[in-house]
Write a protein that binds this DNA or RNA. Structure first.
Lengths: 217, 217, 217, 217
DNA sequence: TAATAATCGAGACGGTACGTCAGGTCTTGTT
DNA sequence: AACAAGACCTGACGTACCGTCTCGATTATTA
């Protein structure tokens, strides 16, 4: 009675853990240096000191490989408690900006997003791995601000509430991404401050007018 | 007295204008249907009823071809006079959203932007063709609002002024793009209204506090 | 009554004679330098300082062009009277050898002959231009030797006679060509002497035995 | 004691021997049907049921491919013992003639020889593969005739000897090639008989006069 | 002195093949 | 079993050349 078999160990030589790590590293490095379209599976394998076969045994194709490598980049994104709502937002804006400005990240992210435009499976993959993870940061930031009394508690209507969160999320993430990738300007403390002021002030002012005049009314 | 340079006609058979148009159309159609990475020069040529060589005579490679085809998509973006600042912004937000939601556009744009991440030449190409064009819309909208008295005249410091315009541009374009491409939600009148209110209110509230407390002070 | 109209002069600009010459020269030079397969019509035209169109107006394709250029090379082959049959043959052998050793000629000839292997039209073209011209040399040499009494008069049977001429022609031309092109050895006075002795002696000895024992008998 | 190098087996999947054979066959067939200049690598690959890349992995370009295919054609050329010198020569003449008259061979040979005119590497390649192989036939024929007493033993001077062999080789091979390719007449028993008689008689008669009167004397 | 008619240079055009490269699969022998 | 090595098929790439086709600009002959 082999107990509960948490890992269905099969016979034969087990997969090498070093290989996994080496491939992921090599993929990210290659992504940084040459970008998605010029990244070749052969080069990744060579750089990782691994046979192409080994690579394909783990990921079914180039897309899978790259997406997984990219998703891991966003693991580090956290929301530190900076003391106030304004400070919290500025912190996360700059953290996100720093992440995107790191040479490879923006390229990787854009590459993956672009590829997703025609691949629904990949698209959902990205939502799970990247978007939802970031959206939780927004939610956590709001909770914290509510505890501090900087924001009013959730509105009565949960739908209305979700719409608000989505809006804020699109505005924050969108602006940072756009400034970094399209305008190609740095997300420095100055910009982060102005931006945060803009949306928090707007949020405060607008939240007064919204409940009374919903579009559907 | 027309005098000079009636036509700098070069020798030899002139290039076919129909070919140019057919190729651009075929490229955009293909981009919509299969995306950047699966688009092949051969298919574009065939669809355009043109030899592959004709295509390479005009654009040096697949990248050049696609970027030029995509840039043209943004030619139609205009800023109609909708009567008020709020209405103007909502109009342009929805127009941009509509453009991005048109199946091919988002794919094309993303593809091109993603590709630009590792190609400085392409990047500048895009800035010229797409970004600067849109930034002019923001400037025009501000002028109009200033004429209406909805916004104060330009600040004394032109640098400060430019920073403000850039911020607004990043916020608007970024949010619309993010909602469309990443969140994959529609840019409808409801969302456009909320978003516009948010930033205009924020702008009004923040502009009161900014001049007094510049970062550098 | 405009008499016999030796030149049916038509209206319009006449063809440039310089162009013709320049093209032929350029073709031969190119043939020498790069060979048939790497010779391009474009390069020939450029080297001749002429438009490609002008070239195609005179020769319908690359093959025609090259064959005509090559055929002209054989115009100079003559049979000088060297005093005796042995001397005559040695003379023509060495003249032919010299011609083939001139850098471009062998290349040109081989190129054209090789191409003819699959092009019956071209093949006939070559026979007319090159082979028949040389065969006349053999006939002339025989006549002269007969006048000198070095060779007996024509046999009674004209067929038999033709077979003999063909044999001699194949042996002489074949040996010289083979030594030059395949063995890549020079046709010098030494070799020419040995070779001539060989076939003249053979001819003398064999002609005694042939008539009596024809194959068909 | 086999000791060393039982098999220098390299890692990885071994090359397919069937592929090699199929490609060679396909090349020769194509050469026969369409000739060098109209033979395309793509067609050869398709006919061989092999990918174009497989072909390029073995031969660096179309030229290499064709030369190797052609050289193999001459492998079959042997010198059977026909009983007498005259019969031996007639045999080899006709065998060589038959080979050249086989539709593809002449084309292939000429094509390759022509190409060699501008490619020293190819030229040497051909010498090794084709010329030297045939020259050995001449040497073997002489040995046999000497054993039979039909020819005198080697002359004292080895140089003189080599010159004689070369002469005979050029005359035999040259005449057969010329008759087949240029005159485009068949090498039948009649012609072979006449030709053999001519050169053997010539050889017998001339060899009497040569030693006494060498050119250098 | 025009009008006409052919040539010329220039170069775009439709094709076809080239030789290269990457993706992904398959086949060896080794660990 | 997994692994390294590398051959293999597929299919697109970007290039070169062929032979054709417009163009405008020359030159001659004819009216």
């Amino acid at each position: 009675m082999p107990s509960s078999a948490p890992s269905p160990r099969r016979a034969g030589r087990p997969r090498s853990a070093e290989a996994d790590a080496a491939i992921m590293d090599a993929t990210r490095e290659a992504l940084v240096e040459v970008g998605w379209s010029k990244l070749t599976v052969g080069h990744v394998a060579a750089r990782a000191g691994v046979a192409k076969t080994t690579l394909y045994r783990r990921w079914s194709n180039k897309g899978e490989l790259v997406v997984n490598a990219v998703a891991a980049l966003f693991d580090e994104l956290e929301l530190p408690d900076c003391g106030s709502l304004q400070a919290d937002v500025e912190c996360v804006v700059m953290a996100f900006g720093d992440l995107l400005e790191r040479p490879g990240t923006s390229a990787s992210l854009m590459a993956v997003v672009a590829e997703s435009t025609h691949d629904p499976v990949l698209r959902e993959h990205i939502r799970e791995a990247i978007v939802e993870r970031q959206k939780r940061l927004v939610l956590k930031g709001r909770e914290r601000a509510q505890e501090r009394g900087e924001l009013p508690p959730d509105a009565g209507d949960p739908d209305e509430d979700a719409r608000l969160v989505d809006l804020i999320f699109d505005v924050i993430a969108g602006a940072v991404v756009h400034r970094t990738l399209v305008s190609a300007e740095p997300v420095d403390a100055d910009w982060a401050g102005r931006f945060t002021t803009l949306i928090l002030q707007g949020l405060a002012a607008a939240s007064a007018s919204w409940p009374e005049s919903p579009r559907s009314a």
